[in-house]
Design a protein around this nucleic acid. Structure first.
Lengths: 379, 379
DNA sequence: TTGTAAGCGTTATCAC
DNA sequence: GTGATAACGCTTACAA
């Protein structure tokens, strides 16, 4: 496999691109043979195949994404990010997905792109448009808002949507029971909310506050429910801890919300925050009020980050391995890519999704990383 | 312009997509007329045009990106992010660019996608591949590494690359002098480094340390140069402040680096950090050593963020308006989009880029936001 | 003003 | 095992 020139000759600026027709002519075969050889399909002799491959490399041939997806299904996957806050998650998922999708080094490139939408409305339109134009083989979303319109839309139109989120009531999951040919549905990403609620309850916190961005994210909503409900098995005397929610939009909002939260006499014994911004706001406010974390106040973050490890005390956080979740998505998405299987293979998606009715969902689930910012509630 | 159904009928799941052929048949005209009408080109009577547009809307027609870019240039722009750290920047740029690119509400969608690469090598390959496949009309990169291979590659292959970064020595800028038909080159994003260096020098800091990620980013490199050099005009007695550089890769590295930096007797009077992670590391270390910021130690951040406003004291930071820079890119990129002008319009790029030889580059430049973390050097 | 037809680069279905 | 050839959806001469 010694390629004479690294990536083929430099394509001259204005030059027409090399097509399989060029390769066919140069190799002295027909374009059909070239197509077969290039796609690793049977029906070509090994000698011819090698010759064609070599010629293509020499000529610096590269597939045309447009022409390819004109005939067959597209070979790309879109990961959607809603707003700048979502960028980290979407990026991590995209990286995990693309590394899992790569099989050979120079295999028919399945590319993973991130679609970044300013807001949820735009995100919905992006999704509809991209789908009706069949721009991508599959769509991945991560930060599911409460009753997210994207899920409804996708379900209605049959969009191959993979939602990386806790199960959404009323939306079909990837289980075999459903067995739909279209993998639209929600993916379980661990039961971190339940475990978090249980952990806080075990520590004796019964006044818990939630400081989270205004867009109602599901993790937060799930946590509230879990806190309000009595513990699963042993419905002991302790009723659910009462959790209050404070929303914020801007950085200043977050700081103000934290201040308001800690000002009251009946201040919470634990504050759950949705990310870095709220974490820093709470820590700073606590410092100003001479509240010691974790002894006077426990703080728990719903999305782990480098900042959680750098603040003092380091923050207990729910760590969602977005990269690994992205990698898990590869299995669901692969059958949809025009590549090997034809459209008749769509049924196989049900099988791939079937691995998800493992109670823990995909292999990688959210974990609660306990650090120094949480302690038993003050007496 | 009252569209009967909002976005047209729901395309049935397995159904073939509606093509201009369908529209033509339904409207009782030829496909050429439909194409002209849909693209707002002259040569169709107003009556026919309205009829066609209406029919297309009724049928829920959407253009096929693949088919379109098979003939003409693609209508999409790619913004590249290298690694998770770059995600925020790239996302902001993409959002600014796409909002600036949108003219009408349902105009021929130019879409902006983010390509996220795990590392620089992959990024270079991504760029080469996407370009040779003519997947996008233009490519935008933001976090230029020192002597970034992407710039060289793009220059060599004639890739329409817009680099949002300080000027790179040896790489042609978007000035009219160059006048190349291909807008490959670097874009000026303000002289924040010089101003930062000047500011620190003015405050009397002559032992400055830089704590930055190992990938040599240009902002950091530029700052070092600026600090080492004597002040521009008045080359007074004070020689350049000596700046030392400490690199980090992981979060733990950053903390260790901060500790090492502040442990020495001859510790710097000011530390410049490249982002949130390093900022928190330095602040926490300072707190542990009972160093008061800013009186014992000044801290300055090279990339503003919400965290900079939430820590105490709030951190002085260079604020780069990536969203606005992205919007500025729209002017450069527009002529490249297959849309209105033909390939002959390529020369117009020189004109658009010409606005960049305004000494400040694009309209939006980096600013130094002075907050509470910087003060005169201790005596 | 409108219709016809020739591509664009690939894949897939035939014959040979 | 290989070679023609017809799609795919759209743009664009050029003809009517």
């Amino acid at each position: 496999m010694t390629t004479p020139s690294r990536t083929g000759p430099v394509p001259a600026v204005g030059a027409r691109r090399t097509t399989i027709t060029d390769v066919a002519r140069a190799a002295g075969v027909s374009i059909a043979v070239v197509s077969y050889a290039l796609n690793g399909r049977p029906g070509v002799s090994d000698r011819t195949r090698r010759h064609v491959l070599r010629t293509a490399a020499d000529l610096g041939w590269r597939p045309s994404a447009a022409a390819r997806s004109l005939r067959s299904a597209p070979h790309s996957v879109s990961v959607q990010a809603v707003g700048p806050e979502d960028a980290g998650r979407a990026t991590a998922v995209a990286l995990g997905l693309r590394s899992a999708l790569r099989v050979a080094d120079d295999a028919p490139a399945t590319d993973v792109v991130v679609d970044v939408a300013p807001d949820l409305d735009t995100a919905v339109r992006d999704l509809e448009h991209a789908w009706t134009e069949r721009r991508h083989a599959a769509f991945v979303v991560t930060g599911l808002a409460h009753d997210d319109p994207r899920v409804r839309t996708a379900h209605r139109d049959g969009v191959p949507l993979v939602a990386l989120a806790p199960p959404v009531p009323g939306v079909p999951t990837h289980d075999t029971a459903e067995g739909a040919a279209v993998p639209s549905g929600a993916w379980f990403a661990g039961d971190a909310e339940q475990r978090t609620a249980h952990y806080l309850r075990t520590l004796g916190h019964d006044r818990v506050a939630l400081l989270a961005r205004d867009a109602q994210e599901h993790p937060a909503a799930g946590l509230l429910d879990a806190l309000d409900a009595p513990d699963d098995g042993r419905a002991g005397p302790r009723t659910g801890a009462r959790a209050d929610r404070v929303g914020y939009r801007t950085v200043e909002d977050a700081a103000a919300g934290a201040a308001r939260l800690l000002a009251t006499e009946q201040r919470p014994t634990a504050v759950v925050v949705d990310g870095d911004v709220a974490l820093l706001a709470v820590l700073e406010t606590a410092r100003q009020r001479d509240l010691s974390v974790p002894w006077d106040l426990s703080v728990l973050v719903l999305e782990d980050s480098p900042a959680c490890r750098l603040v003092h005390p380091a923050a207990t956080a729910v760590s969602r391995p977005w990269g690994e979740l992205g990698a898990d998505v590869a299995a669901v998405v692969r059958p949809l890519l025009g590549g090997a299987g034809s459209a008749a293979d769509a049924g196989a998606v049900g099988a791939a999704g079937g691995s998800a009715d493992d109670p823990d969902g995909p292999g990688a689930v959210a974990r609660l990383v306990i650090r120094g910012s949480t302690a038993p509630a003050p007496a």
